[in-house]
């Protein structure tokens, strides 16, 4: 019996040294919407656009899909099919906290990057709500039957173009359609450890979207976009530029 007790540490060591095969941890993805680094509040706060013009935000929502961790051998570990992120926040404090999605029991290991689609992959976007489980994030009222697409990204707000403190221009940007999905890979180690939560932080800076590379998006002439494919693709490209992994 005593011999068995002496063997216990050895047995334990053997069991727990079998690599990451049997280890699982949780992965938290946190998203914060900012404008030039300032957390965005949907409380009527104004943010600089151009020429003393201001914009404010009401809704900031988007899908991310086909979330995967890339293994060092190039293979991928699937994390989630789709998530809906809503960054509409009532003040700067809650905006700075952002929104997290947590994935439990992810296979342990050292991964070299995380990838996801901003928007829905064609496979998902070709579904309709009647095909989908009642608990799916896709059942969030974002499907437009006549468009044959979910709304991938919703950004709405208003603008004060004559800088008098009163909004005079509505902004409605609905991005969708298979041409508007943008996969993005975020390089950098992702270490999933046994019984631990690994947190990855992402910033979505909408100044990068509306003022990308010094090229302001023309909100005056394109204030409501939900069908124009070219403008939508431009917005989708700008949106992908807004994402950074911290």
């Amino acid at each position: 019996m005593k011999k068995f007790i002496y063997l216990l540490p050895f047995i334990a060591l053997t069991i727990f040294s079998c690599g990451d095969e049997d280890t699982v941890g949780d992965l938290e993805l946190n998203f914060v919407a900012t404008y030039g680094g300032q957390p965005i509040a949907t409380d009527g706060s104004f943010y600089d656009y151009q020429n003393d013009q201001k914009i404010q935000f009401d809704e900031i929502k988007f899908f991310i899909a086909e979330i995967e961790l890339e293994n060092k051998d190039g293979s991928a570990t699937s994390i989630s099919e789709v998530e809906r992120i809503d960054l509409s926040r009532k003040d700067e404090v809650t905006a700075a906290a952002g929104e997290s999605v947590i994935f439990e029991k992810i296979k342990g290991g050292d991964y070299k990057s995380i990838t996801f689609h901003i928007g829905l992959s064609e496979r998902l976007n070709n579904l309709t709500p009647s095909d989908i489980d009642a608990r799916s994030p896709l059942q969030d009222g974002t499907y437009w039957p006549d468009w044959g697409s979910f709304i991938f990204t919703t950004i709405t707000g208003k603008a004060d173009l004559d800088n008098n403190g009163i909004t005079d221009h509505n902004l409605v940007y609905h991005i969708g359609g298979n041409q508007s999905v943008r996969p993005k890979s975020f390089a950098g180690e992702v270490k999933i450890e046994d019984n631990r939560i690994t947190k990855l932080d992402f910033t979505v800076d909408l100044k990068e979207m509306f003022m990308a590379n010094g090229q302001p998006f023309d909100i005056e002439n394109f204030s409501a976009i939900h069908t124009e494919p070219e403008i939508m693709e431009d917005l989708a490209d700008r949106m992908i530029g807004a994402f950074t992994r911290n």
Binding site: T128, P129, S130, I132, D133, A134, R135, Q139, P145
Partner: peptide, 9 residues
Amino acid sequence: LIDFPPMLI
């Protein structure tokens, strides 16, 4: 009904 989503019960 066609096109209707499943109801969440």
